[in-house]
Amino acid sequence: MKNSTWNFIVLSTLIGIFIAYSCYLYFGKGTSSSSAPHMSNLAIEGEQIWQNNNCTACHQLYGLGGYLGPDLTNVISNPQKGEIYARSFLNSGVKSMPKFDFTEQEKDALIAFFAHVDATGYYPNQYAEFSKDGWVKIKYK
């Protein structure tokens, strides 16, 4: 067989595996959160507010996002922080954070979103176990 034909075969095989793998990720269980499978409507509303204000420019969730503010993955369950603490920041305009003007309902929604994210896992994963082959076994909620 000619090289170019081989190239087509390799390419098609790769694309085939890629499609199967992608479908698994979209529809399979492996990517679902085991501890908190579904967001409430209020939490989804909160996420929308989070997006409309581009909070991710400064804050991270699971380490994804900007670097000016702290990661908020576990702000709700953090014994030194928690819901009331997080709430007090929302309209505070602290440091570089813009001075937002959220209503009480909007704050409820944002907090519900944070609470949901918090219930899905840990970040940083303080109780992770390291093994010799470089692998890290993370702790699930």
């Binding site: 990720l25 979209y26 990517t31 679902s32 959160s33 908190a36 499978p37 579904h38 967001m39 989804i44 996420e47 969730l61 699971y62 994804l64 949901h116 994210v117 899905t120 896992g121």
Partner: peptide
Amino acid sequence: RSDYIKDL
């Protein structure tokens, strides 16, 4: 969207 880890 409602499955946060999947979304992420």
